[in-house]
């Protein structure tokens, strides 16, 4: 199953980059290799890898239950309901929201909310999570902004937050 997905991905990647290369010169003056020469070779290698991986996985899975489950959408739904995958997806969603909010609320406030939220969602008590988040934000402020002079994103909503 893994090889089949890897194969399809490699195939799609190769085709996508060949498509992107259509407007980039393959050869330049006097027939020297142009800017799309290497990407095109790599795209072809990607397609070849993809086809080999797909064929290998089909041969391996043919006749077994695994092969039919590849074709069934229920497989994907079952994978999605898998607790481990769900935990990872929840974390990705919260991190995306965190990055989206940084320019609006500023780095420090958003980080405080993010750390608090992730800890609470994954089972840390609110009080403990709040304590850890506040101390970490304080630590980040002292170390990165105070000592290392790292520039962190400031809020575009003005002075409603301290940074």
């Amino acid at each position: 199953m893994k090889d089949f997905i890897a194969g399809v991905t490699a195939l799609a990647l190769g085709v996508f980059f060949i498509f992107l290369c259509r407007d980039i010169p393959l050869l330049v003056a006097r027939g020297y290799p142009g800017p799309s020469f290497f990407p095109l070779i790599l795209s072809v290698v990607s397609i070849i890898c993809g086809v080999i991986l797909m064929i290998k996985s089909i041969i391996r899975l043919r006749g077994s239950k695994g092969f039919t489950s590849v074709l069934r959408i229920t497989y994907l739904i079952r994978r999605f309901k898998d607790r481990e995958v769900l935990n990872a997806v929840r974390f990705i969603v919260m991190t995306v929201a965190y990055i989206v909010l940084i320019p609006y609320l500023g780095f420090l406030l958003t980080s405080l909310i993010y750390m608090l939220l992730v800890q609470v969602v994954y089972g840390v008590s609110t009080f403990k999570a709040l304590g850890i988040s506040v101390s970490m934000v304080f630590f980040i402020y002292i170390l990165f902004i105070g000592i290392l002079k790292v520039v962190v994103p400031e809020p575009i909503l003005g002075s409603i937050v301290f940074r």
Binding site: F91, T95, Y98, I99, I102, F107, S111, Y114, M115, V118, Q119, Y122, G123, V124, A129, I132, M136, I140, F144, V150, V152
Partner: peptide
């Protein structure tokens, strides 16, 4: 790890 992960994630972002 439920305490460690969000803290490291913030370090990754900065």
């Amino acid at each position: 790890r439920n305490i460690l992960v969000p803290v490291i994630a913030v370090f990754c972002v900065i």
